[in-house]
């Protein structure tokens, strides 16, 4: 019997692929954001609104992960951005290796921003770094304002939490301030913006955040 000391990250292989993705993004001046959220939290709709708002400046590319169907990619493509659907066939998260394969499909030199819409799931995607510069989590008002406490990993690893569907808040017992307080229990530095893609409430704050990060990355490249 022999003991072998390892003391390494369990997902170090994923991290190696993620770092390769990050190098490719950095060398082309592309800012990447990984969007995590439960099924139906509004990830695709947010991307549609964002594509309409920026309309090619910055140039946005999208990778969207789902267990099945190309519905989300078809929806997003209608807004004039290059998008590829990753069908995981049952896997509940995207891995850095798969994202790296799909990155090859883009003319990456012409991109400014890559949005990754992860598989709808608040647990598994949090363990898999994809090489993104920023990570964000969506929590919609019908899900309940204790969601950040129930899914701490997603909040802990995110830079921004969007509280979506605020137009539905009057029909639920969701308290936006309490959701923000719950998120900051897990991650004291997280930004929290309430938005509604239906009414447009709060979207300017999100567009500012998005535009600022994309521009910062672009100026680093220049």
């Amino acid at each position: 019997m022999t003991t072998i000391d390892i003391n390494d990250k369990l997902l170090s292989k994923n991290d190696q692929h993620a770092l390769a993705n990050r190098r490719l993004l950095d060398s082309n001046g592309v800012w990447c954001v990984n969007i995590i959220g439960a099924p139906g939290s509004g990830k695709t709709t947010l991307i549609e609104r964002t594509a309409d708002k920026f309309a090619g400046d910055p140039e946005i590319g999208v990778l969207v992960g789902d267990l099945e169907t190309r519905h989300d990619a078809e929806r997003i493509a209608a807004h004039g951005v290059e998008v590829y659907q990753i069908i995981t066939g049952g896997t509940c998260h995207l891995t850095a290796r798969v994202v790296g394969e799909y990155l090859q499909r883009f003319d990456i030199g012409s991109l400014d921003v890559l949005i990754v819409e992860n598989v709808g799931n608040l647990v598994c995607p949090t363990s898999y770094y994809l090489g993104e510069h920023n990570r964000m989590v969506l929590v919609s008002t019908p899900e309940g304002d204790d969601k950040p406490l129930k899914y701490p990993g997603a909040v802990h690893t995110s830079d921004l939490m969007l509280v979506t569907k605020t137009d539905l808040a009057p029909y639920t017992n969701f308290d936006v301030a309490r959701a923000g307080e719950n998120a900051r229990r897990i991650n004291a530095d997280i930004d929290v913006f309430p938005v509604s893609c239906t009414s447009g409430e709060g979207l300017d704050q999100w567009f500012d955040w998005f535009g600022k990060h994309a521009a910062e990355k672009n100026s680093q490249q220049a």
Partner: peptide, 19 residues
Amino acid sequence: VTAALSGGDELDVIKLEVE
């Protein structure tokens, strides 16, 4: 309830016993 958290996010392989 808003203290800053650090650590507690590890997912590591520490050691193996082999024969």
